[in-house]
Simulated scan of single mutants.
Amino acid sequence: MKLTEKQKRFCDEYIKLGNAKEAAINAGYSKKTAKSMGAENLTKPDLKKYIDERMEQLASERIMSAQEILERLSLIANAKIKETVVIANAEGYSEVEKPPDFKVQIQAMKELLKRYPDNDRLLEQQLRKLKAEADVSEAKSKILTDTANKLEGNLKTNQLLMALVDPQLAEPEGEALNDKL
C-alpha cells in the first residue's frame, strides 16, 4: 500500500475530524475540489485500509492491555501507587498523595487472583478436604449410634457418653466395644 504524503495527511485529518471535505482542505487539496476529492478518497481501498489500520492502532493505544491491567492491580495491591486526595484545611484545601487503603488493596488482590487458573484448583482442594472431614465425622457418628443401639441400660448410656468425650475411654479395660457384644 503506497500512499502519497497528501493521501496520508488526508487520512489522518479525516480520522481527527470525521469530515472528508475539511480533511481534504487541511491535507492540501483545493477548496473547490475538496468535497469531491474527500468523497473519492474514502472510496479508494488503500486509503480505507490505512484509515482502518490507524483507527485500530489508536484504539489499542487508548485501551489498556491485560498486562497493563495486571501491573496496575499489582501496584495497588502492593501500595506502590498513590492517589491524590483533596483535604479541607484552615487555608482552604490541599492535595495529598496517599497509598490505597486496605479495602482497596484487598479488592485488587481478589481481582488478581481471579486471573490465575491455579486459584480454582486451590479452592477445589479445599472443598475436597472439607467434604472428606464431613464424611469422617458422619462415619464416626454412625459408628457411635450403631454401637449405642447394641448396648443395654446404664452400660449403653455410660459408654456412649464416654465415646463422645474420648473414643478410647469407651473401651473398658482395653477391650473393644464390639468384642463385648
Score class of each variant (00 low, 15 high):
residue 105 Q to M: 10
residue 74 S to W: 13
residue 116 Y to T: 02
residue 119 N to E: 14
residue 77 A to Y: 12
residue 138 E to L: 15
residue 33 T to S: 15
residue 141 S to C: 02
residue 138 E to D: 13
residue 8 K to E: 10
residue 133 E to A: 15
residue 154 N to Y: 03
residue 86 V to W: 01
residue 73 L to K: 07
residue 124 E to G: 15
residue 144 L to S: 05
residue 28 G to V: 07
residue 156 K to E: 06
residue 140 K to N: 14
residue 173 E to A: 05
residue 34 A to Y: 00
residue 139 A to Y: 12
residue 160 L to D: 04
residue 82 K to P: 00
residue 116 Y to D: 07
residue 14 Y to F: 08
residue 109 M to E: 09
residue 74 S to A: 14
residue 39 A to F: 00
residue 99 P to R: 03
residue 50 Y to F: 02
residue 86 V to Q: 15
residue 102 F to L: 11
residue 85 V to I: 01
residue 6 K to C: 04
residue 57 Q to K: 13
residue 108 A to K: 09
residue 102 F to V: 12
residue 113 L to M: 08
residue 27 A to M: 04
residue 34 A to P: 10
residue 21 K to D: 15
residue 80 K to W: 02
residue 137 S to W: 04
residue 95 E to I: 12
residue 115 R to C: 08
residue 6 K to T: 13
residue 2 K to M: 00
residue 163 A to G: 15
residue 90 A to L: 05
residue 148 A to N: 05
residue 110 K to R: 15
residue 8 K to M: 13
residue 127 L to F: 03
residue 74 S to Y: 12
residue 134 A to F: 07
residue 131 K to H: 10
residue 50 Y to V: 04
residue 33 T to H: 14
residue 19 N to R: 07
residue 14 Y to D: 02
residue 92 G to P: 10
residue 15 I to P: 01
residue 140 K to C: 07
residue 50 Y to P: 09
residue 66 A to G: 12
residue 120 D to C: 02
residue 115 R to P: 07
residue 47 L to G: 00
residue 119 N to H: 15
residue 68 E to V: 08
residue 97 E to R: 10
residue 37 M to C: 08
residue 67 Q to E: 05
residue 130 L to S: 14
residue 93 Y to R: 05
residue 126 Q to V: 15
residue 113 L to C: 00
residue 12 D to F: 01
residue 139 A to D: 09
residue 132 A to C: 06
residue 172 P to M: 08
residue 17 L to R: 13
residue 13 E to C: 03
residue 23 A to D: 00
residue 25 I to N: 10
residue 35 K to Y: 15
residue 106 I to T: 10
residue 36 S to F: 00
residue 84 T to F: 03
residue 161 L to D: 11
residue 176 A to W: 03
residue 1 M to D: 02
residue 62 R to K: 12
residue 14 Y to G: 09
residue 12 D to T: 01
residue 168 Q to F: 08
residue 180 K to Y: 11
residue 86 V to N: 10
residue 45 P to T: 13
residue 43 T to H: 13
residue 23 A to N: 08
residue 154 N to R: 13
residue 143 I to C: 05
residue 135 D to K: 14
residue 146 D to A: 13
residue 67 Q to K: 03
residue 101 D to E: 07
residue 128 R to T: 03
residue 15 I to Y: 05
residue 111 E to L: 12
residue 41 N to G: 01
residue 34 A to W: 08
residue 154 N to F: 08
residue 99 P to S: 08
residue 94 S to V: 00
residue 141 S to W: 10
residue 176 A to E: 06
residue 92 G to D: 11
residue 133 E to P: 08
residue 162 M to H: 00
residue 135 D to V: 10
residue 41 N to F: 05
residue 84 T to Y: 08
residue 79 A to T: 10
residue 85 V to Q: 01
residue 20 A to C: 06
residue 80 K to D: 11
residue 73 L to E: 00
residue 11 C to E: 05
residue 127 L to H: 09
residue 34 A to F: 11
residue 74 S to N: 14
residue 166 D to Q: 04
residue 71 E to V: 04
residue 75 L to F: 01
residue 100 P to L: 01
residue 138 E to A: 11
residue 175 E to V: 10
residue 62 R to V: 06
residue 3 L to Y: 09
residue 78 N to M: 12
residue 148 A to T: 06
